[in-house]
Structure formats: structure tokens, C-alpha cells
């Protein structure tokens, strides 16, 4: 998965996730404020930040394709639903793009285990982050397995017709389910062999220290937007 690869190669990988989350939160706040022109400007700012963090044009355009394929038909539906309200549709598309890009900025600069390692510090979330960490670790193993089985089935005309397709997919899912439990049992035995009693001990991720100045700056920018709304700048 491209986002994952980019995150490991990012120039901002070791920037504290707290800073990136606050910056993302600020973009999020601005995204929900009624300033379409500023949204457009912020899209350009985030695009610049993405390139600064090491995301190439080619990777960015590849990543952009999927959300665009979702945004365009969605906007089209809203356009017809609102009886041709073009302004609303354009604003919606811009907001959607802005918010997606702000999350992309975090996702493409912070590997998932690092982010989960950071979130693990919040005790009530620990069980969810543990489940998410295991899910992340094994979704690639299972995806690779599913791809191989799918390819083998396709090579044997397993998806030639609708009926055959459903049958093949059912075998794939059933087989994958059993494989999942086989791998899980092996994982469990390996943990038991190492004296694990259920607590998943992983090395904490390493980041640069949190820069409070940057946090204050980001929060200031965010609050600026709120003041603009309070002063009626959106009218």
C-alpha cells in the first residue's frame, strides 16, 4: 500500500506525531469553517507540505485518484439532489479534498505502528490500539495470501461467470478464514514460547521531542479561524 510505503520513507517520519495531529486538527477545523477560498488555499498549502515531506508528484497523483473517484460521483449526486446548486457542490468537493489531504499528511508521514505506539500512551485506548496493531501487522500477510489464491482461481477460470465467481470467492474466503486461524495459532504458540501472558510488549517508537512552540503556533492559526467566524468574516 502506497501510503504505508511513503510513511516509512518520509522526511518527517521522526517528527512527533502529536505535532502532526495538532496540525491536522487545525486543517480540520478550518475545513469545517465556511471559507471556500481559504479551503482552496489550504489545499495548495497541504500539497506543498506533502512534497516537502518527501511525497513525489507521481505518488501524489496515484493517491489522489481513489478519493477523486469517490468525490466526483458523490458531488454529482448532491448537485442533482440540490437541484443544480453548483456552489454547494464545489464547496463540498473542496472541503472533502482538504480534509482527505490533511489526513493524508499524517498518514503519509507517520507509519501506523508509530502512531499506534504514540496512542498507546492513552491507557483507555490501549486495548483498541493493541487490536489495531495486530490487525495492521497481519492484514498484509492475509492480503498477500488472498491475492495469490485469487490469481490461482482466475488462472483456472474461477471467475468466468457470476455463479462460478461467487463459488470461487466463497472458497477463497473460507480458506482465508482457516488460514487466519492457522497463523493465529502459530503466533499464539510463539508468544507462549517466549513467556508472554497476554500483554503485547513492543518497543516504543522513537520521535524527536515535542516542539511546544510549533504546537502553540498551530493552535493560534486554528483559533484565528474561529475568531474570523465570530467576527462574521464569512459573510
Amino acid at each position: 500500500m502506497l501510503v504505508d510505503l511513503l510513511a516509512y520513507k518520509s522526511l518527517w517520519r521522526f517528527v512527533h506525531p502529536g505535532e502532526k495531529l495538532v496540525l491536522c486538527g487545525v486543517f480540520l477545523l478550518w475545513g469545517f469553517l465556511p471559507f471556500p477560498w481559504i479551503h482552496f488555499g489550504l489545499v495548495l498549502v497541504i500539497a506543498f507540505l506533502l512534497f516537502w515531506s518527501g511525497v513525489s508528484w507521481r505518488s501524489f497523483s496515484k493517491l489522489l485518484l481513489t478519493p477523486l473517484l469517490f468525490i466526483l460521483p458523490g458531488v454529482l449526486v448532491v448537485l442533482f439532489s440540490s437541484q443544480g446548486n453548483v456552489t454547494l457542490s464545489v464547496q463540498l468537493a473542496l472541503r472533502s479534498l482538504l480534509l482527505w489531504m490533511s489526513f493524508l499528511l499524517v498518514a503519509s508521514t507517520t507509519p501506523v505502528p508509530d502512531m499506534l505506539g504514540f496512542l498507546r500512551n492513552f491507557r483507555p485506548l490501549q486495548i483498541v490500539t493493541d487490536v489495531a496493531l495486530l490487525t495492521y501487522r497481519y492484514l498484509f500477510v492475509l492480503s498477500a495470501r488472498a491475492e495469490r489464491v485469487y490469481l490461482a482461481q482466475q488462472a483456472r477460470l474461477g471467475y468466468g461467470s457470476y455463479r462460478q465467481g461467487l463459488q470461487s470467492l466463497a472458497f477463497l474466503i473460507g480458506g482465508l478464514f482457516l488460514y487466519t486461524f492457522q497463523v493465529m495459532e502459530q503466533f499464539r504458540f510463539s508468544l507462549e514460547a517466549r513467556g508472554c501472558e497476554g500483554e503485547l510488549a513492543v518497543l516504543p517508537p522513537r520521535f524527536r521531542p515535542l516542539c511546544l512552540l510549533r504546537i502553540v503556533l498551530f493552535l493560534g492559526i486554528g483559533m484565528g479561524g474561529v475568531f474570523l467566524v465570530l467576527l462574521g468574516g464569512h459573510r
Partner: peptide
């Protein structure tokens, strides 16, 4: 304690399942 592992794997399974193409 190992139920956590079961759920982690269940999450991975559901993710892969939802990424598979359903014939239509």
C-alpha cells in the same frame, strides 16, 4: 488474554474480506 489476538486477526480478516471484489 489471547482473545485480543483473536480480535486482531479478525480485524485483518474483515479488512481483507472487504477489499475483495464481489462479482455483480
Amino acid at each position: 488474554p489471547y482473545q485480543k489476538i483473536l480480535l486482531g486477526f479478525a480485524g485483518a480478516f474483515v479488512f481483507v474480506l472487504s477489499a475483495l471484489k464481489l462479482p455483480s
